[in-house]
């Protein structure tokens, strides 16, 4: 792992100075607060501005605190993933295209350190943002809804984090493999389109990385399919490792494509 600590410092400085270290957590936290607040006040707001016909009784579903965690996760599954893709799609391809990578690649660093330095810092930012967002939501849920058991929340967050790490790994390894445009397209395909497909026709199988989020939401009730859960976890873990190795390899193979 030659040069890992130097490259970690470089990645950290980069994300601090382009403000990704700040704006991404803030955005996730804002979503984390908005979700419980709107769900709590929506019935009242609708009542006051909705002009419902006289006498009509509109019944809103009674949300539990647990449901709010799951609906916030639904937000992150689309908006959060889009932010991951768009903010980090150029992590490696962008450095190649601008030529800033050239002066790194001529140094005796290992491409393992190069890839992992990005992987560690991006995962740190995104996981930190996701956890902060859910903690903010948790605080509001406790005030506006019912207290939720800490054990359930942490089991949920731990499981969901694996999916988030998978998403980050997909984006970074694709960025090592392709130009930025291709990275964006293929990442959205893998992380969002396939996610939707899995949720529509995924009833036919129980093991897939796209089900990890669904399994995470079951932490608040009970997991109906224990073996499916653990196999999905295992498969996602293996895919993450494979994608990291692929990313390192591609970063190395594409090194010659850097602008000299």
């Amino acid at each position: 792992m030659k040069g890992l600590s130097v490259l970690l410092q470089k990645e950290w400085r980069e994300n601090a100075r382009n403000f990704k270290l700040y704006w991404i957590p803030i955005v996730f936290v804002i979503f984390g607060i908005i979700e419980p607040v709107t769900n709590h006040f929506l019935p009242e707001i609708m009542k006051s501005v909705g002009n419902l016909p006289e006498g009509s009784e509109f019944t809103w579903p009674q949300f539990r605190g647990e449901d709010i965690f799951v609906s916030l996760m639904g937000q992150y599954q689309l908006i959060g993933i889009l932010i991951i893709v768009l903010a980090f799609m150029g992590s490696i391809s962008g450095e190649r295209k601008s030529g800033t990578a050239t002066l790194l690649y001529v140094r005796p660093m290992s491409f393992g350190s190069y890839f992992l330095s990005k992987w560690i810092v991006v995962n740190g930012i995104i996981l930190g943002s996701v956890w902060l967002g859910f903690f903010a939501a948790w605080y509001y849920i406790n005030i506006l809804f019912n207290p939720v058991a800490a054990g359930d929340v942490f089991a949920f967050l731990a499981t969901y984090s694996l999916w988030i790490i998978f998403a980050v790994t997909v984006v970074l390894s694709f960025s090592a493999w392709m130009p930025t445009g291709g990275t964006a397209g293929l990442s959205i395909l893998v992380l969002i389109v396939l996610q939707v497909i899995d949720s529509v026709i995924g009833a036919f199988w129980t093991v897939s990385p796209w089900k990890v989020a669904t399994y995470a939401s079951m932490m608040f009730s009970s997991i109906t399919n224990q073996s499916g859960f653990w196999m999905s976890i295992g498969l996602t873990f293996v895919l993450i490792v494979v994608l990291i190795l692929f990313g390192i390899n591609m970063a190395k193979r594409n090194a010659a494509k850097t602008t000299v």
Binding site: E14, R17, N18, G99
Partner: peptide
Amino acid sequence: FLPQYPKFFPWL
């Protein structure tokens, strides 16, 4: 190695 047009990370 010095490329013809060396490119640096502008934030460093």
